[in-house]
Amino acid sequence: MKLNEIREEARKKLAAMHARSERDLAALKTYLFGKAGVLTGLMKSLKDLPQDERPQAGKEINDVRVELSAMCDEKEKELHRLAIEESLNAEQIDLSIDKPCHAVGARHPLNTVKNRLIDYFIGNGYIVYDSPEIETDYYNFQALNVPPDHPARDMQDTFFINDGILLRTQTSAGQIRLMEKFKPPIKMICPGRVFRNDDDSTHSPVFHQMEGLVVDKNVTLCDLKGTLENFAKFIFGEQTTIRFRPSYFPFTEPSVEVDVSCFNCHGDGCRVCKNTGWIEILGAGMVNRRVLENCGIDPNEYQGFAFGMGLDRITMIECAINDIKLLWENDVRFLRQFK
């Protein structure tokens, strides 16, 4: 057969191949390049040509050989790709059903909110301080300027263990322990459980507070407002404003209640803010001079502010939880809403 004919025949055969022509390709390669293949045969027959024609004929045969070999390799890759593509169709699965992997768990919403607040204050240079839940009367009351039989004790129903030991009613107790240990500049928060002998539809005997304390030279009531205003914007959004109202806590003077503008109605009045436009979220004030003295800090040199907020209340506001009891029921349907 002529070289040209071989070339044309091979080209035709290659062009006719399809996804399942793997064997045909192998056969073609054997036919062309095998020991008994046609090209191999032509090469062998070179010796029959006159000496001076051999180089030219040899080159021609080799060119065709190289060309066809490359075409076969190319075809082989194409056939492999086609074969895989064809097999994908057979691998269709039902995409509409679910076979779950193990889901991650949910953090309790109270702790999620608590961590968010903690992170905010950490970012502002505060340390986090933990202080005992079973406390002495001294740390929970006396050092905070509430002597025995002071009427301010009526503000909180205390659980007692005995005369001198009780369940802390406020995280403010942490202020004293911290100030006994560290000296100004102080910036700390003390989040934790507190206890009051109070159990009705809006109160739980165990709840959570977060105390904040800043003590240094030249700390003012305006600094308190700036701190809490930034904090309120962080929690409730940039448009939030706060207002101070005079109040009374034995361990601060002056003392204020702090309201934030209602995040729902922005002050127009709605159900969330009971039509007042404001939501009460924390109590605060300038640290009472006696409290500083009790902790060995000179009130003539240092001033400070303190604030305390109810984490349960903030959680309920943030997560639109209307019943405080839900926080303690551990109903998995509730918990998994906060994944």
């Binding site: 800043v214 030249n218 700390v219 009531l221 407002k225 700036g226 205003e229």
Partner: peptide
Amino acid sequence: IISTHSENT
């Protein structure tokens, strides 16, 4: 009472 940001602490 205005908001200030503890410039002196």
